[in-house]
Design a protein around this nucleic acid. Structure first.
Length: 240
DNA sequence: TATAAGATTGGCT
DNA sequence: GCCAATCTTATAT
């Protein structure tokens, strides 16, 4: 007796969500996140973030991410290994959302990686909207003629458009209303890397090329740091 | 308690 | 490119 499932889905969610997910029955498993953070970050490109709320569902393709690597990484909230109320979720099991509030007005969402006890995470910086676009537009209070690719461009805008706030901190991404699904396979040539954005205070760590994004995708946030638009090949040269 | 700063954004020069 | 908005968080006193 399974028919109610489809009927419920059609009543509560935009009709395009099911199509976007391509019939995938379940989100990415915890094993996806229980891996080296840099690998998870790269692999998150092309995945699909979904948030189901009482207002409706929204979904978007991940087009920009940044890796944050724990106690030694001066750019990370877990730098120094100090466990606080804010970064507590980073110390927990992989596959959970770490959502924090910043600049008095914006939320940012990360996915926790690595084994429990290793406070590393990947920041989701931008999505290409796929479903629930009208709802995203409403949440951002933008006119109808604003291009969809601007709705979730930047970590703060992403959370605003997706309806993600502090109540989602600690959410299980493998089961629940906020989840990540496998999406497109992104080929290497389509991927670009650069240093992370907005962490000039991190000294030498600020130069690490731990930001990944889809080359030429209009949904990728505008780089506000000079020398940020570093291409994939160029970065490889720098690293070698 | 008090204070400084922030994994940002949008508007203005 | 510069800067204000806005308030939680971390850290010091």
């Amino acid at each position: 007796m399974t028919p109610p499932k489809r009927a419920l889905a059609e009543r509560r969610w935009p009709p395009d969500l099911e199509e976007v997910l391509g019939g995938q029955p379940s989100p990415l498993p915890q094993e996806f996140y229980r891996r080296p953070t840099l690998r998870v970050a790269r692999d998150l490109l092309g995945c699909i973030l979904v948030h189901r709320t009482s207002d409706g569902a929204t979904a978007g393709l991940v087009v920009e991410v940044e890796a944050y690597r724990g106690p030694k990484d001066r750019g990370a909230h877990s730098f120094g290994g100090r466990r606080t109320a804010r970064n507590e979720v980073m110390y927990g099991a992989p596959g959970y959302a770490y959502v924090y509030f910043t600049y008095g007005m914006h939320f940012c969402m990360n996915v926790v990686t690595e084994e429990e006890g290793r406070p590393e995470a990947v920041l989701l910086r931008a999505l290409r909207p796929l479903a629930g676009v009208a709802l995203m537009r409403r949440r951002r209070s933008l006119d109808r003629d604003v291009p969809a690719e601007r709705l979730a461009r930047g970590p703060g805008n992403l959370c605003r458009a997706m309806g993600i706030d502090r109540s989602r901190n600690g959410a299980d991404l493998t089961a629940g209303d906020l989840s990540l699904y496998a999406g497109e396979t992104i080929r290497g040539a389509a991927v670009a890397r650069s240093p992370r954005i907005g962490i000039d205070y991190a000294g030498e760590w600020a130069g690490r090329p731990w930001r990944w994004f889809l080359r030429d995708d209009p949904a990728v946030s505008r780089a506000r740091v000079s020398g940020t638009a570093v291409g994939f090949e160029r970065v490889r040269r720098v690293l070698s």
